[in-house]
Nucleic acid binder design. Sequence first.
DNA 1: TTTTCGT
DNA 2: GACGAAAAA
Length: 332
Amino acid sequence: MSKRKAPSSDNPNHDFCEFLIEIGEYERNVNRNIHKYNAYRKAASSLAAHPTRITSGKEAKKLEGVGQKIAEKIDEFINTGKLRKIDKIREDDTSNVISLLTRVSGIGPAKAQEFFHSGINSIEELEKNKSKLSHHQLIGLKYFKDFEEKIPRSEIEEIEKLVRGYVSSLDNSYLITICGSYRRGKAESGDIDVLITHPSFTSSTTDKDVSTRHLKKIVALLEKNKLITDTISLGGVKFMGVCRIKDIARRLDIRITPHDQYHCATLYFTGSDIFNKEMRAHALQNGFTLNEYCLRRMGSTGVPGEPLPVSSEEDIFDYINYPYKTPTERNL
DNA sequence: TTTTCGT
DNA sequence: GACGAAAAA
């Protein structure tokens, strides 16, 4: 998630989309109105999909999801080059505080609103009210600055070596893949997403404690070796926490997946989101359904069949007749 | 059991 | 967009 997406290159209505999305975020985060948020998103995506430049509100109104109000905003923007509503949002206190608080991991729109209404309107105020924060939010605050830093590829490579060393010292039949933008070859990443599997854990393993034991043992070992410094959450299949090898703390996720679902999982968690979407759409067209767990053939009734055997990511591409893409070719 | 947050 | 984990209710 490190690189910016196509700027305005192939979207002649880029600027309209931008302000609609900004208003949408405002409606969701500040007014807690998910319906307006969805409405603005829908309008923005209609505009984005439109191949030519819209030149009036009236023309925009023909598009799905664009009604009277949004048409008026488009006219105002065309005529004056700006929007009073946007200016208003940008200088609005509530809005700015909520955007700030929301940057703390563990604080979403609901909590940010609650804090704001109880007079907490800055990071300093959060520091003074630690008793009001959840465990997750305390970690988000503690590493507020660190978590906004990108992670250089070289650092993830070092962490990967360490994780591989520790985990294989436990049992050399663990399989480990670091997914996300790192696997797609990016020079820097936002966090570290480790996927692990073990032959003793499959989708037919009924004992839930099997995966839990694997995961807890791994996490305990990494903690003992001072790689993991904090735990945000730890369940039977997913760890979310913090690791550190240099002066900056990094977000680390570890998930354990059933052995027979490993390749679908690595594919899914490697992304990119847009690539996944395209690939799933292609799967559907060829009569398959693909998710993070498995690939299934669609019956004529529309009911998915049994998961198909998959022994590599290539297998998945082959099944759905999609030309194979290496991880570094999945950046769109 | 439902809501919130993150992925 | 679904889902796991934590917290609230």
